[in-house]
Amino acid sequence: MPERTPHRIAGVDEAGRGPLAGPVVVAAVILDPARPIAGLDDSKKLSEKKREALYPLVIEHALAHCVVVVEAEEIDRLNIFQATMAGMSRAVAGLAPVAHEALVDGNKLPRDLPCPGRAIVGGDALEPAISAASILAKVTRDRLMVQLDTVHPGYGFAVHKGYPTAAHLDALQRLGPCPQHRRSFGPVGRALEQMALF
């Protein structure tokens, strides 16, 4: 009798929906039941050091993983919700071996997922595969923002990662938006309007 293929479940999560600058990063991960990873949790609850330690373990132990970067330009074109959904579909489609089911953190499923899916509110704390995806997405995005800080100095991207902190809003007023800023986000749009006046 042929051996039954195990049911492969992908966890899907994103990092960077709220920032004013930089990409939104989406990850999909299929964990290997034979190689569990201790310490997985919602990436927001883990220290940076812990996330960085877990990142290579997820890469090494997972059956499959895919990380997708959706740039600011696409976020402005589609809106942040649609850009995130598109990233989720791409991440699941990029898995090899393919997923039989996707568990997505949040309350909405992308319409064009390549397999059946379930949305799970707070899933990044409940489902290890979503926790693993949240760690890959967060670490990837944080590293990207540190790189972007050297390309666009003065905004403090390495510190606040593009989130609307007081220091970031102040830099936005002083320097105006850079190419990594999301034009469709209120504070960036207002900074552009002010620049047009002077």
Rank of each mutant, 00 (worst) to 15 (best):
A34P: 07
A62N: 06
Q194M: 15
H61K: 14
D32I: 12
V98T: 12
R8P: 07
D149M: 01
A28T: 02
H168C: 09
Q82F: 06
A166H: 06
A191F: 10
G18H: 02
L54Y: 12
L40P: 08
R182M: 02
R111F: 14
G39H: 11
R8M: 11
R35Q: 15
A93L: 06
S47C: 10
D170R: 13
G156N: 10
L126F: 11
R143D: 02
E48S: 15
D41N: 14
Q180F: 14
P56Y: 11
V25G: 00
A93E: 09
A34S: 14
S43L: 11
G186T: 11
L126R: 15
L109K: 08
K45P: 06
Y163H: 05
R118G: 04
P19V: 01
P110E: 06
G189A: 13
G16N: 04
V67F: 00
A158L: 03
L20H: 02
G122S: 10
E101C: 13
V69N: 00
C178F: 03
G189F: 03
G22L: 02
R51F: 13
L144N: 01
F157P: 01
Q180D: 12
H152K: 02
P2E: 14
V29W: 07
A27D: 04
M85W: 03
D112S: 10
G176D: 05
C115M: 05
V68P: 00
V67S: 00
P128I: 10
T5G: 08
D32C: 14
V24P: 03
K161S: 09
S184A: 04
V26H: 00
D41L: 06
K45A: 13
A10P: 07
Q82I: 01
R174E: 13
V70R: 04
R77N: 05
A91N: 04
V104D: 07
C178G: 13
S89I: 00
H61A: 14
S131V: 08
K161H: 09
G87H: 04
I75E: 00
T165I: 04
H181I: 02
A15P: 02
N107S: 14
M1H: 13
D142Q: 09
A125M: 05
A119F: 09
I135S: 08
G87S: 03
L103N: 06
L192R: 09
R77S: 10
E74V: 08
V24H: 02
V98Q: 13
G186W: 07
H65R: 11
A38M: 11
G16W: 08
